[in-house]
Amino acid sequence: MPEPGPNPIDLGEPIDIGTPPPASSDEDPDTDADSKTKSKRPVRRVLIAILLAVATAAVAMLGFTSWRIIAQRHAELEIQPSVGPLSLDYSREGASTADYLRTALAAEVELDRTYGAVYQEAPDKNVLFLAGTGLLWTPGKDLDAAMNLISDGEGAVTELKTVDPGPLDGTMKCGITKSSDGDLTVCGWADHGSLALAMFNNRTPAEAAPLMLALRNATESR
């Protein structure tokens, strides 16, 4: 009969170690998502602030432009018999030239009414003046278009410089163009209700600018 072997080892009841926990990461997913959301908030605030600033500036600019249009659109012009040292030329040739200038301006810029005049100061100094009234949305561009009228007839207006437009505001420029009789100074103004050009012989832009301002102050009213 065989000898009994050693008693079996009692391992006891199985130990329930449960479900192993998920592999840990350096950051909790919820914490990571929340952190990313928070990090985006300052960027969004900056973008919103920039958009608000741009919108505010645009509204302010629109308001200022609208105010200028309303203030300037109802301009009226009246040709004066004399302005400073200038006297209106009533001769047939002067009237014919004035009519030609008026017609040429009307063909170049869309205006409700146009005017033309020739002023004289001395036999060797005169001023060809053409102007018109109407609603101008872009006075600066319309003034450049009117300058092309001079360019077609004489030559490009060069050395254009902005000069003081006076209390009526808007834009005023003076430059030089070539002609068969020598250099001509060309000055012009434009606002949301009127536009004018003048050609001065035997005058520099520095001499013509204050005379153009005097013509404007005497001719334009609102």
Rank of each mutant, 00 (worst) to 15 (best):
D124L: 15
P165V: 08
D152S: 12
L52H: 01
S25E: 15
T97E: 15
L101V: 01
P81N: 05
V54L: 04
V118A: 09
K36N: 12
A208D: 07
P81I: 11
P8I: 12
M61Y: 08
H74E: 10
K40Q: 06
A209T: 08
V46M: 07
I70G: 02
L168N: 07
L160V: 05
E154S: 13
A58K: 02
A106Y: 07
E207D: 14
V59I: 06
R222G: 13
S66E: 03
A104D: 14
G134N: 10
T97P: 00
I150C: 03
G5K: 09
N201A: 11
E220Q: 03
T138A: 14
D16Q: 07
A145G: 04
S87R: 11
L213P: 04
L47N: 09
N201C: 03
M172R: 15
T171H: 05
G116M: 12
L195V: 09
N202L: 01
W137C: 05
T204K: 09
G155T: 09
L86Q: 14
N126R: 15
L105C: 02
T185S: 07
T219Q: 10
D112V: 09
T204Q: 14
G170Y: 02
V186Y: 08
E154G: 02
T219N: 01
L143M: 08
S66P: 01
L168K: 14
D183Q: 12
P8M: 07
A58T: 07
G166E: 14
G182R: 00
V118K: 07
S66A: 08
F129Q: 14
E76W: 06
G166K: 11
L184T: 06
P21Y: 07
A98F: 09
L101I: 02
A156W: 01
W137I: 14
P4R: 00
T158A: 05
Y100A: 04
S87T: 15
H74C: 00
T97V: 01
T219A: 13
E108L: 07
S151W: 04
A156T: 06
T162A: 15
T65Y: 14
A55V: 10
L47F: 11
L184M: 00
A214Y: 00
P22T: 05
F200E: 01
S96P: 00
V109G: 01
K38G: 12
G170W: 01
L77R: 13
L215R: 04
F129C: 06
G193M: 09
T31Y: 10
P123H: 09
A58M: 11
L135V: 10
L101D: 06
C174K: 03
C187S: 09
A196K: 06
P2N: 03
P85K: 10
G193D: 12
P21N: 00
A53C: 03
A75N: 06
A146M: 05
K40A: 05
S66D: 09
M199D: 02
V43Y: 03
A33M: 07
L135Y: 14
S25W: 08
L211Y: 04
L197M: 11
I79M: 13
A146E: 07
D124W: 15
D183W: 00
T177W: 01
L105I: 05
P167N: 08
A106H: 08
S179R: 05
L211F: 04
S35V: 05
M147F: 13
L143K: 01
I48W: 01
A33Y: 09
P20K: 08
P2R: 02
K125M: 14
L51T: 04
P42K: 07
P8W: 08
E110P: 00
